[in-house]
Simulated scan of single mutants.
Amino acid sequence: MAREYIVLVAGPMGAGKTTAIAALSEIPVVRTEALNTDPARNAKATTTVALDYGEISLGDGDKVRLYGVPGQDRFDFMWRILEKRALGMMLLVDNTASDPLSELERYLHSFEALGARGALVVGITRRDLGRMPPLEAYHARLAQLGRVLPVFSVDARNAAQVRTMLGTLIAMVEAQAARQPTGATA
């Protein structure tokens, strides 16, 4: 029987969510872009205001539905709508941000309910532009929060790197499902 995986791609504005979905999607990405009205936070011209959507077929009829959530807090109502059916999340954090470790913590807290029931992986983007903090600092912050999660250095434009993150996430979702008692529902 074919399975469907609903996966969120979350993170701050400019972390590479739309780019990562575009790198993976087999269909033209549905985008809801608008002019960026917060250039002080990020100089990019547009920003996602509702969602980005892409799809990937895994074989045997299995499908991954990727939903990119807006990075700005003023659109956080979309976070709640989109996370309801999600089985997991790829969290992207821009390493060149002024305080990327705080961004990591903020998003983990914001998606705490999904983290409690679903699988999470973390991708650190733009490490080619800013090598600090190192990946070890992300692991240390996660440890302070009592979390052990896979952390990847990822170029959101590189389909192979993003696919590795997604494959890890799907494996985690399947492992969680295998641990559930027969007849249990998520």
Rank of each mutant, 00 (worst) to 15 (best):
M90A: 14
R74E: 13
G14E: 12
W79L: 14
A184N: 06
A178D: 10
T32W: 08
D73V: 06
L8D: 11
M13A: 15
M89T: 14
D99T: 09
V29G: 02
T18L: 08
L92P: 02
T47W: 02
A177G: 12
R31F: 05
L135T: 12
L129F: 12
Y138H: 05
V7K: 06
L58F: 00
A2H: 13
R141G: 07
R3Y: 06
Y138G: 01
T164S: 09
L87E: 14
A45T: 13
T37F: 04
N36T: 06
K44I: 12
V7F: 08
L108R: 10
A137K: 05
L104N: 11
R3H: 11
G54H: 06
S110Q: 05
F75Y: 15
T32D: 01
P12R: 13
S98P: 01
E4G: 08
E136W: 01
A20L: 07
L120W: 15
L8R: 09
T46N: 06
N42K: 14
L35Y: 12
A86D: 08
P70Q: 09
L166S: 08
V122M: 04
L66T: 05
E33H: 05
L142K: 12
A160W: 00
G123D: 06
I6P: 02
P100Q: 05
G88S: 00
T19G: 15
A10V: 13
D94L: 05
V162Y: 01
V30W: 00
S102I: 02
Q144F: 04
R126W: 07
G167E: 11
I56P: 00
V49H: 04
L120D: 06
Y67V: 07
A10I: 13
A186S: 15
G71W: 11
N36A: 09
Y138D: 00
L66M: 13
T185D: 02
G123I: 03
R126H: 14
T164N: 01
P12D: 15
Y53I: 07
V9G: 00
D73L: 11
A143N: 15
R106L: 04
R74F: 07
A23S: 14
R3D: 14
L114A: 12
R141E: 11
D38R: 15
A186D: 12
F111D: 04
A177D: 15
G118I: 03
P181A: 14
S57Y: 03
R74L: 13
Y67E: 00
L169K: 08
R3W: 11
I21W: 00
L24C: 04
A178P: 11
D38S: 15
E33P: 01
